[in-house]
């Protein structure tokens, strides 16, 4: 059961800080994402958008601030005024509720598409393979790859691989999906299929945070667009406002380069 009271945000970030050595990558991020909302993170490379995304499922540890998903802190347990880091097993349980899709696809190359999609439910959730298989087949059908079930990643195009990766993330029935530049590594003609799958997912009401350079997708599918630069949120708001009439000079300069 969700511990989140109704109308409370699915993701809440308060003054999130993160440094790699002496380089401060996130300088206090405040952000909130409601259930069912699609939030698109845009910004120049090195602005900290991917790092922030990876903090949400604790692939990176935050150095300061507070980050919670569905009402629970990510990677920590609060007791009084202290934050205790969670054990690996507890973090795993939390991560399994958050799906993630990577820029570099990261399918498991030694497994077929079907086995990739079944791996999480069978190994992590200990589901029976028949149940997992049925759902995996349904998910692969949903991303348009019903005929590629037995194929191995190197037999699939980049776009097909990324759609398998989306199905793999969905197989855990996540509350939240994180997309880290899901189309940046794809040939231009393959981008559309992946975006179509993501659009359908958004229409089904999935909460999504999408780091992207696809401004068209952000405008059309996003409920909110957040522009990050230099480790801070420069501006955020409705896509048509941020993308067409940005208030900040930095946003304007960035958009003039990518649009």
């Amino acid at each position: 059961m969700s511990k989140r009271p109704d109308n409370a945000p699915m993701v809440q970030a308060k003054q999130v800080h993160k440094s790699f050595g002496r380089l401060e990558v996130l300088k206090g991020i405040d952000l909130s994402v409601d259930a069912g909302e699609v939030l698109c993170l845009i910004g120049p490379s090195g602005s900290g958008k991917s790092t922030f995304l990876r903090c949400i499922n604790h692939l990176e540890k935050i150095d300061g601030g507070e980050l919670s998903v569905d009402g629970e802190l990510v990677g920590y347990r609060q007791s009084g005024n202290r934050l205790y880091e969670l054990r690996d097993r507890e973090v795993c349980g939390k991560r399994s509720e958050i799906g993630m899709v990577f820029q570099r696809l990261n399918l498991f190359p030694h497994m077929s598409a079907l086995d990739n999609v079944m791996s999480g439910p069978v190994w992590v959730k200990k589901e029976s393979s028949s149940v997992a298989r049925e759902r995996a087949l349904r998910l692969l059908d949903r991303v348009g790859l019903a005929d590629k079930v037995k194929s191995y990643p190197n037999q699939l195009s980049g776009g097909q691989q990324q759609r398998v990766a989306i199905a793999r993330a969905l197989s855990m029935q996540p509350k939240l999906m994180l997309f880290d530049e899901p189309t940046s590594a794809l040939d231009p003609e393959l981008v559309g299929d992946v975006l179509d799958v993501m659009r359908a997912l958004a229409e089904d009401g999935m909460t999504m945070i999408v780091v992207t350079h696809e401004m068209g997708f952000a405008r059309e599918v996003g409920d909110t667009v957040v522009f990050m630069d230099g480790g801070v949120v420069v501006e955020s708001g409705e896509p048509k406002v941020v993308l067409t009439a940005p208030r900040h000079e930095r946003t304007r300069a960035f958009l003039s380069k990518v649009l």
Binding site: L59, S96, N106
Partner: peptide, 12 residues
């Protein structure tokens, strides 16, 4: 990336 993908699925 393989490790990250596995961890993002919740594997220990």
């Amino acid at each position: 990336g393989q490790t990250e993908a596995a961890q993002s699925l919740g594997m220990s």
